[in-house]
Design a protein around this nucleic acid. Structure first.
Lengths: 146, 146
DNA sequence: CTGACTGCAAATAGTTTGCATGACG
DNA sequence: CGTCATGCAAACTATTTGCAGTCAG
Protein backbone atom coordinates (compact mmCIF):
# COMPACT_ATOMS: atom_id res chain seq x y z
CA UNK A 1 0.00 0.00 0.00
CA UNK A 2 1.32 3.41 -0.91
CA UNK A 3 1.38 5.59 2.17
CA UNK A 4 0.06 9.08 2.55
CA UNK A 5 3.64 10.20 2.99
CA UNK A 6 4.73 8.69 -0.31
CA UNK A 7 1.91 10.28 -2.25
CA UNK A 8 2.61 13.56 -0.54
CA UNK A 9 6.19 13.48 -1.68
CA UNK A 10 5.22 12.58 -5.24
CA UNK A 11 2.81 15.51 -5.36
CA UNK A 12 5.49 17.88 -4.12
CA UNK A 13 8.00 16.60 -6.59
CA UNK A 14 5.62 17.18 -9.45
CA UNK A 15 4.88 20.70 -8.26
CA UNK A 16 1.37 20.16 -6.93
CA UNK A 17 0.32 22.03 -3.84
CA UNK A 18 -0.32 20.25 -0.62
CA UNK A 19 -3.53 21.76 0.62
CA UNK A 20 -5.38 20.70 3.78
CA UNK A 21 -8.17 19.38 1.57
CA UNK A 22 -5.82 17.14 -0.35
CA UNK A 23 -4.26 15.97 2.89
CA UNK A 24 -7.66 15.01 4.25
CA UNK A 25 -8.59 13.14 1.10
CA UNK A 26 -5.27 11.32 1.00
CA UNK A 27 -5.67 10.33 4.60
CA UNK A 28 -9.03 8.74 3.92
CA UNK A 29 -8.09 6.80 0.84
CA UNK A 30 -4.75 5.60 2.13
CA UNK A 31 -6.29 4.43 5.36
CA UNK A 32 -9.07 2.49 3.74
CA UNK A 33 -8.67 -0.97 2.40
CA UNK A 34 -12.00 -0.83 0.62
CA UNK A 35 -12.88 0.49 -2.73
CA UNK A 36 -14.69 3.77 -2.35
CA UNK A 37 -16.86 5.81 -4.65
CA UNK A 38 -16.20 9.53 -4.97
CA UNK A 39 -19.21 10.15 -2.80
CA UNK A 40 -18.04 7.63 -0.17
CA UNK A 41 -14.78 9.46 0.02
CA UNK A 42 -16.56 12.78 0.27
CA UNK A 43 -18.66 11.55 3.18
CA UNK A 44 -15.71 10.29 5.14
CA UNK A 45 -13.59 13.34 4.47
CA UNK A 46 -16.46 15.65 5.22
CA UNK A 47 -16.97 14.18 8.68
CA UNK A 48 -13.47 15.09 9.75
CA UNK A 49 -13.06 18.23 7.70
CA UNK A 50 -16.42 19.74 6.78
CA UNK A 51 -14.70 22.34 4.67
CA UNK A 52 -13.98 19.93 1.83
CA UNK A 53 -16.38 19.90 -1.09
CA UNK A 54 -17.38 17.04 -3.32
CA UNK A 55 -15.93 18.85 -6.31
CA UNK A 56 -12.52 18.81 -4.71
CA UNK A 57 -12.80 15.08 -4.19
CA UNK A 58 -13.47 14.64 -7.90
CA UNK A 59 -10.58 16.88 -8.85
CA UNK A 60 -8.22 15.12 -6.48
CA UNK A 61 -9.25 11.74 -7.85
CA UNK A 62 -8.58 13.01 -11.37
CA UNK A 63 -5.16 14.13 -10.29
CA UNK A 64 -4.29 10.86 -8.60
CA UNK A 65 -5.50 8.94 -11.61
CA UNK A 66 -3.35 11.08 -13.89
CA UNK A 67 -0.38 10.32 -11.68
CA UNK A 68 -1.28 6.64 -11.71
CA UNK A 69 -1.64 6.40 -7.96
CA UNK A 70 -5.11 4.95 -7.80
CA UNK A 71 -6.98 2.38 -9.78
CA UNK A 72 -10.58 1.59 -10.60
CA UNK A 73 -12.55 -1.33 -9.30
CA UNK A 74 -15.37 -2.58 -11.48
CA UNK A 75 -17.28 -5.17 -9.58
CA UNK A 76 -20.79 -5.25 -8.19
CA UNK A 77 -22.32 -3.02 -10.82
CA UNK A 78 -20.39 -0.20 -9.28
CA UNK A 79 -18.08 1.04 -11.95
CA UNK A 80 -16.57 4.01 -10.27
CA UNK A 81 -14.92 2.91 -7.11
CA UNK A 82 -11.34 3.75 -6.44
CA UNK A 83 -8.51 2.29 -4.54
CA UNK A 84 -4.99 3.37 -3.72
CA UNK A 85 -2.39 1.45 -5.62
CA UNK A 86 0.03 -0.68 -3.77
CA UNK A 87 3.61 0.42 -4.23
CA UNK A 88 5.58 -0.39 -7.34
CA UNK A 89 3.12 -2.86 -8.66
CA UNK A 90 2.72 -2.44 -12.35
CA UNK A 91 0.47 -5.36 -12.71
CA UNK A 92 -1.90 -6.77 -10.16
CA UNK A 93 -5.51 -7.69 -9.65
CA UNK A 94 -8.16 -7.56 -6.98
CA UNK A 95 -10.16 -9.97 -4.95
CA UNK A 96 -13.17 -8.25 -3.41
CA UNK A 97 -15.48 -9.14 -0.59
CA UNK A 98 -19.01 -8.37 -1.69
CA UNK A 99 -20.16 -7.95 1.93
CA UNK A 100 -17.68 -5.55 3.41
CA UNK A 101 -15.80 -4.24 0.41
CA UNK A 102 -12.38 -5.36 1.55
CA UNK A 103 -9.92 -5.68 -1.27
CA UNK A 104 -7.02 -8.09 -1.41
CA UNK A 105 -4.40 -7.81 -4.12
CA UNK A 106 -2.71 -10.58 -5.97
CA UNK A 107 0.06 -10.37 -8.46
CA UNK A 108 0.54 -13.67 -10.13
CA UNK A 109 -2.50 -13.91 -12.37
CA UNK A 110 -1.11 -16.47 -14.78
CA UNK A 111 -3.22 -15.45 -17.74
CA UNK A 112 -0.26 -15.18 -20.06
CA UNK A 113 -0.73 -18.55 -21.64
CA UNK A 114 -4.45 -17.99 -22.05
CA UNK A 115 -3.63 -14.69 -23.68
CA UNK A 116 -1.16 -16.36 -25.98
CA UNK A 117 -3.70 -18.97 -26.93
CA UNK A 118 -6.31 -16.32 -27.70
CA UNK A 119 -3.88 -14.37 -29.87
CA UNK A 120 -3.15 -17.47 -31.89
CA UNK A 121 -6.76 -18.38 -32.31
CA UNK A 122 -8.24 -14.97 -33.03
CA UNK A 123 -5.43 -13.00 -34.62
CA UNK A 124 -5.91 -10.25 -32.05
CA UNK A 125 -3.01 -8.30 -30.68
CA UNK A 126 -3.83 -8.22 -26.99
CA UNK A 127 -2.74 -5.18 -25.00
CA UNK A 128 -4.48 -5.47 -21.72
CA UNK A 129 -6.80 -7.40 -19.51
CA UNK A 130 -9.20 -6.97 -16.66
CA UNK A 131 -9.45 -9.61 -13.99
CA UNK A 132 -11.29 -9.50 -10.69
CA UNK A 133 -12.60 -12.06 -8.28
CA UNK A 134 -15.59 -11.50 -6.07
CA UNK A 135 -16.43 -13.50 -2.99
CA UNK A 136 -16.87 -13.44 0.73
CA UNK A 137 -13.93 -12.86 3.05
CA UNK A 138 -13.17 -14.96 6.09
CA UNK A 139 -14.69 -12.48 8.52
CA UNK A 140 -17.93 -12.07 6.65
CA UNK A 141 -18.31 -15.82 6.33
CA UNK A 142 -18.58 -15.92 10.12
CA UNK A 143 -21.07 -13.06 10.30
CA UNK A 144 -23.26 -14.16 7.42
CA UNK A 145 -23.49 -17.93 7.34
CA UNK A 146 -24.82 -18.87 3.94
CA UNK B 1 -25.25 -15.87 -30.48
CA UNK B 2 -28.86 -15.94 -29.38
CA UNK B 3 -31.10 -15.07 -32.29
CA UNK B 4 -33.92 -12.60 -32.37
CA UNK B 5 -36.26 -15.51 -32.82
CA UNK B 6 -35.03 -17.24 -29.68
CA UNK B 7 -35.38 -14.15 -27.55
CA UNK B 8 -38.81 -13.55 -29.00
CA UNK B 9 -39.93 -16.98 -27.98
CA UNK B 10 -38.53 -16.58 -24.49
CA UNK B 11 -40.40 -13.31 -24.08
CA UNK B 12 -43.64 -14.90 -25.21
CA UNK B 13 -43.21 -17.84 -22.93
CA UNK B 14 -42.73 -15.56 -19.96
CA UNK B 15 -45.81 -13.58 -20.86
CA UNK B 16 -44.15 -10.41 -22.10
CA UNK B 17 -45.69 -8.61 -25.02
CA UNK B 18 -43.97 -8.45 -28.32
CA UNK B 19 -44.34 -4.85 -29.38
CA UNK B 20 -42.89 -3.35 -32.54
CA UNK B 21 -40.51 -1.31 -30.37
CA UNK B 22 -39.16 -4.39 -28.70
CA UNK B 23 -38.80 -6.09 -32.04
CA UNK B 24 -36.79 -3.18 -33.38
CA UNK B 25 -34.51 -3.15 -30.35
CA UNK B 26 -34.00 -6.89 -30.49
CA UNK B 27 -33.14 -6.67 -34.14
CA UNK B 28 -30.42 -4.14 -33.49
CA UNK B 29 -28.77 -5.88 -30.59
CA UNK B 30 -28.93 -9.33 -32.04
CA UNK B 31 -27.46 -8.15 -35.31
CA UNK B 32 -24.56 -6.31 -33.76
CA UNK B 33 -21.41 -7.99 -32.69
CA UNK B 34 -20.22 -4.94 -30.81
CA UNK B 35 -20.96 -3.84 -27.35
CA UNK B 36 -23.39 -0.94 -27.43
CA UNK B 37 -24.38 1.68 -24.91
CA UNK B 38 -28.07 2.35 -24.35
CA UNK B 39 -27.70 5.50 -26.39
CA UNK B 40 -25.91 3.67 -29.23
CA UNK B 41 -28.80 1.27 -29.37
CA UNK B 42 -31.28 4.11 -29.34
CA UNK B 43 -29.54 5.80 -32.26
CA UNK B 44 -29.56 2.71 -34.39
CA UNK B 45 -33.11 1.77 -33.57
CA UNK B 46 -34.28 5.30 -34.06
CA UNK B 47 -32.94 5.43 -37.59
CA UNK B 48 -35.10 2.56 -38.68
CA UNK B 49 -38.07 3.17 -36.43
CA UNK B 50 -38.21 6.80 -35.29
CA UNK B 51 -41.11 6.00 -33.05
CA UNK B 52 -38.96 4.32 -30.42
CA UNK B 53 -37.89 6.39 -27.44
CA UNK B 54 -34.74 6.19 -25.40
CA UNK B 55 -36.76 5.31 -22.33
CA UNK B 56 -38.05 2.21 -24.03
CA UNK B 57 -34.51 1.19 -24.81
CA UNK B 58 -33.64 1.46 -21.13
CA UNK B 59 -36.71 -0.51 -20.12
CA UNK B 60 -36.05 -3.21 -22.66
CA UNK B 61 -32.45 -3.51 -21.54
CA UNK B 62 -33.66 -3.88 -17.95
CA UNK B 63 -36.00 -6.61 -19.03
CA UNK B 64 -33.37 -8.49 -20.99
CA UNK B 65 -30.97 -8.20 -18.10
CA UNK B 66 -33.58 -9.57 -15.73
CA UNK B 67 -34.08 -12.50 -18.08
CA UNK B 68 -30.33 -12.97 -18.30
CA UNK B 69 -30.20 -12.50 -22.03
CA UNK B 70 -27.61 -9.77 -22.20
CA UNK B 71 -24.43 -9.06 -20.35
CA UNK B 72 -22.37 -6.03 -19.49
CA UNK B 73 -19.01 -5.16 -20.94
CA UNK B 74 -16.69 -3.13 -18.78
CA UNK B 75 -13.70 -2.15 -20.78
CA UNK B 76 -12.45 1.17 -22.06
CA UNK B 77 -13.79 3.27 -19.26
CA UNK B 78 -17.21 2.57 -20.64
CA UNK B 79 -19.02 0.71 -17.96
CA UNK B 80 -22.45 0.47 -19.44
CA UNK B 81 -22.23 -1.28 -22.72
CA UNK B 82 -24.34 -4.30 -23.45
CA UNK B 83 -24.10 -7.37 -25.53
CA UNK B 84 -26.42 -10.19 -26.38
CA UNK B 85 -25.47 -13.40 -24.72
CA UNK B 86 -24.48 -16.32 -26.77
CA UNK B 87 -26.77 -19.29 -26.38
CA UNK B 88 -26.63 -21.61 -23.44
CA UNK B 89 -23.33 -20.32 -22.24
CA UNK B 90 -23.39 -20.04 -18.52
CA UNK B 91 -19.82 -18.99 -18.31
CA UNK B 92 -17.81 -17.12 -20.87
CA UNK B 93 -15.64 -14.06 -21.30
CA UNK B 94 -14.96 -11.38 -23.84
CA UNK B 95 -12.08 -10.26 -25.95
CA UNK B 96 -12.67 -6.76 -27.27
CA UNK B 97 -11.13 -4.73 -30.03
CA UNK B 98 -10.49 -1.25 -28.75
CA UNK B 99 -10.67 0.20 -32.25
CA UNK B 100 -13.88 -1.15 -33.69
CA UNK B 101 -15.65 -2.61 -30.68
CA UNK B 102 -15.90 -6.13 -32.03
CA UNK B 103 -16.35 -8.70 -29.33
CA UNK B 104 -15.14 -12.27 -29.47
CA UNK B 105 -16.22 -14.76 -26.86
CA UNK B 106 -14.17 -17.46 -25.30
CA UNK B 107 -15.26 -20.13 -22.93
CA UNK B 108 -12.27 -21.89 -21.52
CA UNK B 109 -10.83 -19.30 -19.17
CA UNK B 110 -8.83 -21.63 -17.02
CA UNK B 111 -8.89 -19.51 -13.90
CA UNK B 112 -10.13 -22.31 -11.70
CA UNK B 113 -6.75 -23.21 -10.32
CA UNK B 114 -5.91 -19.57 -9.71
CA UNK B 115 -9.21 -19.26 -7.90
CA UNK B 116 -8.44 -22.33 -5.84
CA UNK B 117 -5.06 -20.95 -4.94
CA UNK B 118 -6.56 -17.63 -3.88
CA UNK B 119 -9.16 -19.33 -1.72
CA UNK B 120 -6.45 -21.27 0.06
CA UNK B 121 -4.29 -18.27 0.61
CA UNK B 122 -6.88 -15.73 1.63
CA UNK B 123 -9.68 -17.74 3.19
CA UNK B 124 -12.18 -16.14 0.80
CA UNK B 125 -15.09 -18.04 -0.56
CA UNK B 126 -15.02 -17.00 -4.18
CA UNK B 127 -18.33 -16.76 -6.04
CA UNK B 128 -17.56 -15.02 -9.23
CA UNK B 129 -15.01 -13.38 -11.44
CA UNK B 130 -14.67 -10.82 -14.14
CA UNK B 131 -12.23 -11.36 -16.96
CA UNK B 132 -11.82 -9.40 -20.16
CA UNK B 133 -9.07 -8.95 -22.68
CA UNK B 134 -8.61 -5.83 -24.72
CA UNK B 135 -6.61 -5.59 -27.89
CA UNK B 136 -6.69 -4.91 -31.57
CA UNK B 137 -8.41 -7.28 -33.99
CA UNK B 138 -6.89 -8.56 -37.19
CA UNK B 139 -8.77 -6.11 -39.38
CA UNK B 140 -7.88 -3.05 -37.34
CA UNK B 141 -4.23 -4.09 -37.27
CA UNK B 142 -4.19 -3.62 -41.02
CA UNK B 143 -5.95 -0.26 -40.91
CA UNK B 144 -3.98 1.18 -38.03
CA UNK B 145 -0.40 0.01 -38.17
CA UNK B 146 1.14 0.68 -34.81
C1' DC C 1 -61.38 -5.61 -23.18
C1' DT C 2 -57.71 -4.97 -19.99
C1' DG C 3 -53.30 -4.94 -18.27
C1' DA C 4 -48.92 -4.35 -19.96
C1' DC C 5 -46.22 -1.10 -22.70
C1' DT C 6 -45.12 3.36 -24.53
C1' DG C 7 -43.83 8.32 -24.98
C1' DC C 8 -43.36 12.49 -22.89
C1' DA C 9 -41.87 15.45 -19.39
C1' DA C 10 -40.09 15.95 -15.14
C1' DA C 11 -37.29 14.16 -11.41
C1' DT C 12 -33.02 12.27 -9.80
C1' DA C 13 -28.13 11.00 -9.75
C1' DG C 14 -23.49 11.53 -11.08
C1' DT C 15 -19.98 14.40 -12.93
C1' DT C 16 -17.91 18.61 -15.06
C1' DT C 17 -17.19 23.58 -15.76
C1' DG C 18 -16.94 28.84 -15.03
C1' DC C 19 -15.74 32.12 -12.07
C1' DA C 20 -14.48 34.84 -8.06
C1' DT C 21 -11.99 34.15 -3.82
C1' DG C 22 -8.37 32.26 -1.04
C1' DA C 23 -3.97 30.24 0.36
C1' DC C 24 0.46 27.35 -0.70
C1' DG C 25 5.12 27.85 -1.73
C1' DC D 1 3.09 37.80 -4.55
C1' DG D 2 1.63 34.98 -8.36
C1' DT D 3 -0.44 30.96 -9.39
C1' DC D 4 -2.67 27.04 -8.48
C1' DA D 5 -6.55 25.18 -5.80
C1' DT D 6 -11.04 25.67 -3.78
C1' DG D 7 -16.12 26.35 -3.17
C1' DC D 8 -20.25 27.52 -5.03
C1' DA D 9 -23.66 27.43 -8.44
C1' DA D 10 -24.90 26.19 -12.70
C1' DA D 11 -24.43 23.18 -16.66
C1' DC D 12 -24.39 18.65 -18.47
C1' DT D 13 -25.00 13.73 -19.06
C1' DA D 14 -27.02 9.46 -17.79
C1' DT D 15 -30.78 7.15 -15.88
C1' DT D 16 -35.36 6.65 -13.50
C1' DT D 17 -40.14 7.66 -12.49
C1' DG D 18 -45.15 9.35 -12.88
C1' DC D 19 -48.79 9.55 -15.72
C1' DA D 20 -52.15 9.39 -19.37
C1' DG D 21 -52.91 7.35 -23.67
C1' DT D 22 -52.35 3.07 -26.65
C1' DC D 23 -52.15 -1.57 -28.23
C1' DA D 24 -50.93 -6.70 -28.07
C1' DG D 25 -53.06 -10.73 -26.76
Amino acid sequence: MITERQITSILKKRGYKLTPQRKAILKVITQSYDHLTPYNIYERVHQESPDVGLVTVYRTLDLLTKLGLICEVHAEGNCHSYLVKRPSEQHHHHLLCSQCGTVVDFVDCGVEELQERLCQKTGFEIHDHLLEFVGCCRNCQKTTPS
